[in-house]
Simulated assay, not measured.
Amino acid sequence: MHKYRYLKIVSLIQALLGLILAAMSFILVPVCPPMHGMHMSCFYTGILVTCSGIIILILAALNYFLQKDGWNKLIALVQIIIAALAYMIPSKIIPVAIGTNMQGHTRFIGLCMKPMPCWNSFRASSICLLLIVIIALVYLAMQYVMKKD
């Protein structure tokens, strides 16, 4: 098989993982529902994870249709960065403020304080993000190791 056939298969796997990630927070393993009419921090984590999944899906589609090694490598690196950010922001490794609460304290994207459904959602999306990073690294390795046919 040619190099690009293998790379297209990997791109399809990336696209599937991006689709799963996009559906994770609100369909497959939903985050917490609104409490007292307000969304909690985990709702915004769900939006971040969904947007990350959509972006990874789009980048995987670009990788599928492009056959330019430089661009394909760059897209794989961008996928790794997006997956890392989608993990680090809800973990508060990189804090991102979303406003203030009723007491005037800053609210950050993250999870609820006590175990709630959002914890399961974040665990599942973390596994999916890890798989996306691994597949993107495999894609990069294939770019460097395989010869053009």
Score class of each variant (00 low, 15 high):
26 F>R: 14
20 I>K: 13
62 L>M: 13
75 I>K: 07
27 I>P: 01
112 C>T: 03
126 S>M: 01
39 H>T: 00
103 Q>T: 05
90 P>R: 08
90 P>V: 03
46 G>I: 06
58 I>K: 09
60 A>I: 05
148 K>M: 02
130 L>S: 15
64 Y>F: 12
99 G>R: 13
69 D>L: 12
126 S>I: 07
18 G>F: 11
126 S>W: 04
106 T>K: 03
145 V>R: 15
87 Y>K: 13
137 L>S: 14
73 K>C: 08
44 Y>D: 00
104 G>I: 02
16 L>C: 11
49 V>R: 02
36 H>G: 00
108 F>N: 09
138 V>K: 13
25 S>R: 10
116 M>T: 05
149 D>P: 12
145 V>W: 15
130 L>A: 15
56 I>G: 09
140 L>V: 14
69 D>E: 15
49 V>L: 08
108 F>Q: 08
64 Y>H: 15
41 S>A: 06
63 N>E: 12
118 C>R: 00
145 V>Y: 12
9 I>M: 09
20 I>S: 11
135 I>H: 08
14 Q>T: 09
58 I>L: 15
58 I>H: 09
10 V>M: 12
82 I>K: 03
107 R>W: 09
44 Y>G: 00
64 Y>G: 09
130 L>H: 09
10 V>F: 14
136 A>G: 12
69 D>T: 07
66 L>D: 07
46 G>A: 04
60 A>M: 11
26 F>G: 04
12 L>T: 10
52 S>I: 00
6 Y>C: 03
125 S>N: 06
90 P>C: 08
1 M>L: 03
144 Y>F: 15
109 I>K: 05
34 P>N: 01
54 I>F: 13
133 V>F: 11
19 L>Q: 10
105 H>Y: 14
106 T>C: 01
125 S>G: 06
